[in-house]
Simulated assay, not measured.
Amino acid sequence: MTSPSDMALQKTLEEAFDALCASIDTLCRHVDRHPPQLWCLPSDGGQPRSAAAWLREALTDMWYHDGQDGRATRNYVGVVAADEALMALAEAVNRGKDHFGEVITQIRTALPADRLSAMRAALPLRPSAVNAHLCDDGLARLHLKQCWRRVLIAPAPVARIRLAWYSNGRSIKRLSVQDAERLLMQLDTSADHVRIQYRKLAALPSDEPLAQVQAQAPLMRANLFYVEPLDDGRQRQAMNIAMPLFVPSPNGRLPHCNQPPAAPPETRTRARRSDSRIDDEPWLPSIRVHRYRY
C-alpha cells in the first residue's frame, strides 16, 4: 500500500519531470522559430539535419533503447551559436535537470530502490501533453543519466574550438591488498582462475599498493579559445563534450571549429608514456587490478 509520503514524493517527481520537459520544449520551440547556426557531428554515418531537428533529438533523448547497457549514454557532439535569449533557455534546461536530479537523490535516500523503479516506470504512462512526444508507445523506460546530464554552456564568447577524439582514457583507483581480496571474495571462489589470483595476491607484501584500472569509452574533447580572458585570467578551457555546447554569440555566428573524424580511431594514436608507473598487464585480471612499477 502506498503511503502518503510516497505519494508526495511521486507528485514531486512528476512535477520535476514535467518542468524539465517544459523547459526543453520551450527551447526547441524557440529554435524552430529562430534557427541558430549549428555544427554537429553526424551520428551513425547519417547526414546532418537541421539545427532544430538535431537539438530536439539531443535534448529529448531520455529513454533506454532495446538492449542498451544501463551504464551507457548516447552522445550528441555539437556546437550552437546562441544569442542571449537562447543562452537563457539553455540555462533554464540545466536548472530543470539539476532539480530533477535532486529529487531523484531525495527519493533514493528516503525509499527502497524498487519504489524509485516503480515511480520512474510510471512517468511516461501519464497522459501529459508536455511529454507525450518523448516516447513512441508510452512504455519506454526512463534513462536517468540521460535525463539529468547537463547541456554545456561556455561562459564567454569563443574565438575558435579545437575538437579531437580522446580514445585512450582510463580511470585509476588505488587499492590495498585487503581491498583486492574483498573484491575477489565477491567472485566465485571455487573457480580455478579465481583461486590462482588468490594465490598471486597472497604472494604480495600486505602493504603493497595496487591500481584498479578501467578503460573509458572514447569521448570528444574540445579546447575552447576565448575572445577575451575569463575573470580568472584563463583564455583557454578544455572540456569533454557529449551534449550540445552553447557558446554566446552576439552576431549569431559560430566560432571557427575544425572538422574531427565522425568516429574515434580504432587504434592508439598517441605513444604510450614511457614514465607510466602501472604495469601494462593486469596482475588480477578478473578485477582489473595492476601492480605499480618500481
Rank of each mutant, 00 (worst) to 15 (best):
S3K: 12
K11T: 10
K11A: 13
L20G: 08
L20W: 08
A22E: 14
D25C: 03
T26R: 13
H30W: 07
G46H: 14
G46T: 05
S50K: 03
A53C: 10
R56Q: 15
A58L: 11
T60N: 02
Q68L: 09
A72R: 15
R74S: 09
G78T: 05
A81N: 03
A81Q: 07
A85F: 00
A85C: 10
A90P: 05
N94G: 10
H99D: 12
V103T: 15
P112D: 09
D114M: 01
R115H: 03
L116V: 06
A121N: 10
A121Y: 00
N131V: 00
N131F: 06
H133L: 06
C135Q: 09
C135Y: 04
D136P: 00
D137E: 13
G138L: 05
L142F: 02
K145V: 15
W148G: 06
W148Q: 12
W148H: 12
I153G: 02
A159C: 02
R160G: 03
N168K: 06
R170S: 11
R170N: 11
R174S: 13
L175A: 01
S176N: 01
S176P: 01
R182N: 10
Q186H: 07
A191Y: 02
D192S: 03
V194N: 10
V194Q: 09
R195M: 12
I196E: 13
L201D: 02
A203P: 04
D207V: 04
P209E: 13
Q212V: 07
V213G: 13
Q214S: 15
A215K: 09
Q216H: 04
Q216Y: 01
A217E: 07
L219W: 01
R221N: 09
A222F: 11
A222S: 07
N223S: 13
F225I: 10
F225L: 12
R234P: 03
F246E: 07
S249T: 11
N251T: 11
N251A: 13
G252R: 04
P255K: 11
C257N: 08
N258S: 04
P260I: 10
A263E: 06
P264G: 03
T267Y: 06
S274G: 03
L284E: 11
L284R: 09
Y294L: 10
